[in-house]
């Protein structure tokens, strides 16, 4: 009859991760991750490694964004690169053709991402959840082909000459400055996604993932919340797209194939759906590993595909699963008060 939390983990399936999580705590982990990201250039600040690091950071942002949709809400989005493309193209076109600063394009990108999320999610989320998967797949193609066909998006050759990042008069276009700017933005994005995940809305997403009917019975409008998750994912993807354009200064339809969507999904699945530290590590792993294994380039996508199957069969919770555990402080068994009920 004691309310103290038992020392021994109650679930036997993930003792190591539990211990790790207990030892470190998500917040402390976050600081460690940030410190590693900030110190990395001191180890190697060549343009090549900075670009790898920047790409990895952007990939982290994409993965935590997709994690909102897939990990929290349990919806499979296979066209996530589309939002990434929308962000990159909208800001790229505004910046090159109309000479806007990248910061000024943010509201437009947000609006475009939300709109796209509503157009795709609106009709599809009313149906069985697996329909979303294939419709998003089609959506990814629609966006890519449209970018390929339109003149304003530069057709197959895309847009080039996208300006670097400049925030409040501060020029952040040098590789090092840009990397640090990206790290800060991505860190905020990671924290933001994690905070959403721990809020009323984030809980509702998980309720939907676990049991849609039970969630609905608790007064949760599951359709609206699924749409909210999808739109939140769109926003994260769109914002990452702006940074992507700023990093490469040139974008083309080839940058936004299904391969991208699949790799982001792999990062989320491998790391552990719904788990912020897992997804961040998964993203770093998926984006940096190919750089280390350049010789094995032919094998890596095959291996990634097999990995998806193997993880789902043998370890569906991923390598660093999200934990259902809360600290419950020692409590005296309180006297049952009937008047404490309030509607």
């Amino acid at each position: 009859m004691t309310w103290n939390r038992k020392k021994a983990p109650t679930s036997a399936d993930t003792p190591r991760a539990r211990v790790l999580n207990r030892l470190l705590g998500e917040r402390r982990l976050g600081w460690i991750g940030l410190a590693v990201a900030l110190l990395a250039p001191f180890v190697d600040a060549s343009n090549y490694s900075l670009s790898v690091l920047t790409s990895a950071a952007l990939f982290v942002m994409l993965a935590v964004g997709l994690n909102i949709v897939v990990g929290y809400c349990g919806l499979l989005d296979l066209g996530y690169a589309a939002f990434f493309a929308i962000g990159a193209y909208v800001s790229g076109v505004l910046a090159t053709t109309y000479g806007w600063s990248l910061l000024a394009t943010v509201p437009v990108v947000l609006a475009a991402a939300v709109l796209a999320g509503v157009i795709i999610g609106g009709p599809t989320l009313r149906l069985r959840s697996d329909y979303l998967a294939i419709v998003t797949l089609g959506f990814g193609e629609i966006i890519r082909i449209t970018a390929n066909n339109l003149d304003i998006t530069g057709g197959p050759s895309g847009i080039y000459g996208i300006p670097g990042l400049e925030l409040f008069g501060l020029d952040l276009s040098s590789p090092v400055a840009f990397y640090y700017a990206v790290v800060v933005i991505v860190a905020l994005a990671v924290v933001g996604a994690a905070r959403l995940g721990r809020s009323r809305m984030g809980r509702a997403w998980r309720f939907i993932r676990e049991d849609e009917d039970a969630a609905e019975a608790m007064g949760i409008h599951t359709y609206k919340l699924k749409l909210a998750a999808y739109i939140a994912g769109a926003v994260w993807g769109g914002l990452a797209g702006i940074l992507f354009g700023a990093q490469l200064s040139a974008i083309s339809p080839q940058s936004f194939t299904f391969l991208w969507s699949a790799l982001i999904l792999l990062a989320v699945v491998l790391g552990g759906m719904g788990s912020t530290p897992g997804v961040v590590l998964g993203a770093v792993f998926v984006s940096v590993l190919p750089e280390l294994l350049r010789d094995a380039a032919d094998y890596r996508f095959f291996v990634f595909g097999v990995l998806l199957i193997v993880v789902m069969i043998f370890r569906p919770q991923g390598l660093w699963p999200s934990q259902a555990s809360e600290r419950t402080p020692a409590r005296r068994p309180e006297v049952q008060k009937e008047d404490a009920w309030q509607a």
Binding site: L196, G219, I220, E326
Partner: peptide
């Protein structure tokens, strides 16, 4: 039909979803 993977407390919080007064910005900014 419990939310098996979630904590017991979270399960009960589900019932409070409609009454909790917070929005996305509150959550983002704590």
């Amino acid at each position: 039909r419990l939310f098996g993977e979630l904590t017991v407390l979270d399960n009960v919080r589900a019932g409070m979803h409609m009454r909790m007064k917070q929005n996305a910005f509150d959550a983002l900014l704590h």
